[in-house]
Design a protein around this nucleic acid. Structure first.
Lengths: 228, 228
DNA sequence: GAATATAGTGTCCTAGTGACACTATTAAGG
DNA sequence: CCTTAATAGTGTCACTAGGACACTATATTC
């Protein structure tokens, strides 16, 4: 076996960043400034810079910051998508990440941010996205739904301090179906991930307790799925 | 934003293939014939050949076949491991796969198979493996254990036709703890993944029913974990 | 202070699993 | 043929975490 001598495929990183606004799930997209797929919307990503990026996670973070001005609260590897046909420039290998963040408007003040924008997930079918990004987003959404069933991951869609009602809304938005408030409270207590603070009012009604992540805790995984 | 112009990191594929023999979990390793880590044991893997490999999964399959003579019954992406320090030749990105197979002795008749061998997982700490392969195997083992709790994945460690007792043994070996035969039978029935056949005897005792995967079924995932 | 809206609790039901004793079927050995 | 041992499979009750849903609590608005 010889060492290299092969043509290496192009390796890139793509990010599917989700956020929730007004009980709707949004994905962050950027408009491509160059061919191929010039002017089409696409996932923010790019090439690894071995001088800047400690590893692929750092690369994903950097690309998000650079292209959208935002830093995810949570980031994990999704899956590698590869093949000769997904990029007209040739054989390519792309590692997709999936990320969560409390909803923040994209500030167009930043120079490098050409066109970055949040898109409602349920309107994406009307868009023509670059490459296989439509499919990648679908995979990411599936993973997010799966994890929402058995973990506390959705808290990363909320600010540092939040109410049970907000968390319930986030989970229901992700799953696309209602859950029992009682079940959620049982999980919050069982997880031992949170501490209480003062109060807060929402629209009408009694003021809700404000919860807050304990510093440095791991995301609890439960032994059962919700709603089944 | 310019196009490329960057130095691309080395992209490779590595495979963690598991099998079970004599109630012990084994990993398939190959002995490196070249530097770095010359003569150390390592995971079978290599570079993508864009002419031969439809995608990275095909690459993983090809490398396994080529280096060990075996074809996995199940294969899925595990995770990407990356960084400047994991390979002395420079910045590298490796996509690790995790694979299952009914135990088959490695036939050393094949030429290209220099030194391939099954190693018991619990003896690996005594070996010095190449790169970060020790860590990758640990991650793969964790994933396998997790999936064994809520899915029928362990059937891929068994031949086409098998008994409940064998499946119980496989799962217990993976998890490192006993499970209830009754629970397993309930899951087998609920999954609706299998059909019955004739009979079979093992050592002493009553003959066990032989089960067999229905053609083309998906691996059932359950809504609860076992043993919790 | 009544109406309304949201937050949080009490309590029973249910599904899927654990525990474990019990029955069933086979081989081996007198 | 009968007994023993060994493994296969079943019956049944207990336990746990979530679902359902009525009820209480606390706030705002008029």
């Amino acid at each position: 076996m010889t060492e290299q001598g092969f043509i290496q495929p192009l390796f890139t990183v793509d990010n599917v960043m989700f956020a929730i606004n007004n009980a709707r799930l949004y994905v962050l997209l950027v408009k491509r400034a160059i061919a191929p797929y010039h002017n089409n919307w696409s996932l923010p990503g790019g090439f690894v810079d071995i001088a800047l990026d400690k590893d692929v996670e750092a690369c994903a973070m950097r690309k998000l910051k650079q292209k959208t001005g935002l830093t995810p609260a949570y980031l994990e590897q999704l899956e590698v998508f590869s093949g000769a046909d997904r990029d007209p420039r040739g054989y390519s290998v792309s590692l997709a990440f999936f990320a969560l963040l409390p909803y923040t408007p994209v500030s167009s003040q930043i120079n490098s941010v050409s066109h970055a924008s949040w898109w409602p997930l349920d309107q994406l079918t009307q868009l023509t996205l670059a490459f296989d990004h439509q499919f990648i987003i679908a995979q990411a959404h599936q993973r997010l739904q799966q994890k929402a069933l058995y973990s506390m991951l959705p808290v990363f869609c909320l600010p540092a301090t939040f109410t049970v009602g907000q968390l319930k809304m986030v989970i229901e938005t992700i799953l696309g179906k209602d859950i029992q408030r009682k079940s959620l409270m049982r999980r919050i207590e069982a997880s031992d991930m949170f501490t209480l603070t003062e109060q807060k009012q929402v629209s009408g009604g009694r003021q809700a307790q404000l919860y807050q992540l304990k510093p440095g805790v791991d995301i609890t995984h439960f032994s059962r799925n919700m709603g089944a």
